[in-house]
Design a protein around this nucleic acid. Sequence first.
DNA 1: TCTTGACTGAGAGTTACTCTCAGGATTTAT
DNA 2: ATAAATCCTGAGAGTAACTCTCAGTCAAGA
Lengths: 138, 138
Amino acid sequence: MYTIQKVAEIVQLSPHTVRFYAKKGLFPRITRDQHNVRLFSNKDLEYVEIVKALRTTGMSLRDIKKYIDLCEQGEATVEQRYQIMKAEVDKSAAKLAESHRQHELLAEKLKYYQQARLKGEKQIMWAPQHRWTVFNED
Amino acid sequence: MYTIQKVAEIVQLSPHTVRFYAKKGLFPRITRDQHNVRLFSNKDLEYVEIVKALRTTGMSLRDIKKYIDLCEQGEATVEQRYQIMKAEVDKSAAKLAESHRQHELLAEKLKYYQQARLKGEKQIMWAPQHRWTVFNED
DNA sequence: TCTTGACTGAGAGTTACTCTCAGGATTTAT
DNA sequence: ATAAATCCTGAGAGTAACTCTCAGTCAAGA
């Protein structure tokens, strides 16, 4: 059994955030000790991990809650959960691809800067040189 | 020259968001027509694109603003901009890797669901089956 | 003329944190 | 033994980045 601090450390979230999630009902099975301290089992830890994964891929806490609630309802909801997970994995793949594209754009820009550094002061894309294009400024 | 609507369409942002960014001073060189309508040049469009890329990789608007302001100061700031861009590209690569890991985790979970569907009702990881682990519920 | 699309500023609402406060319990150091 | 450090709690304020609505203006096109 893990304290919230330990859990935070393992899954790389702040204890604040874990408590925040707990408050939202995302970990419905957590037990407490005699001092009301949350104790996370390995199963709870798996929940925290999947919640983190769903957040990282961009699912809203509201939708994560729905998914968790379905989990709590047992095997009758397996098909529904499958559909949700399938949609999320697809969406996540698309986002990943888009993030990759944007990353490439920045990496390319970085190359221009590197060239500029090597060649001393040379004109660089993205760095506006032409003051005459400015017509109004606030 | 493009209107805000056209720009939004090209870079895949809402006109709302483009105006929001403009208000924050992220596109300092935009010209206006005689009716005060924003007209984006190709250079401005490049700005919008790089702002989008920086946002997508997770840079705050505050830091993007700083970067843009450096751009406006001309070639004297090339080295500084290079450092910023380098740091951002590195950070972005790390985030991309992390997102990829989380995506894999979900994809693996999806496989369990697929197995469960094929085998009819079978126990699935992440889907708690053991009511006896529940000690308290709010 | 009337719809469409652009603009303005102000401001409210939302999501997901993120932090601060006040307070209580337990462990560790002196 | 007492004090400091470290854990925890709940309540609630603050923040970032949208996101949208309202109210009102202006101008071009069917």
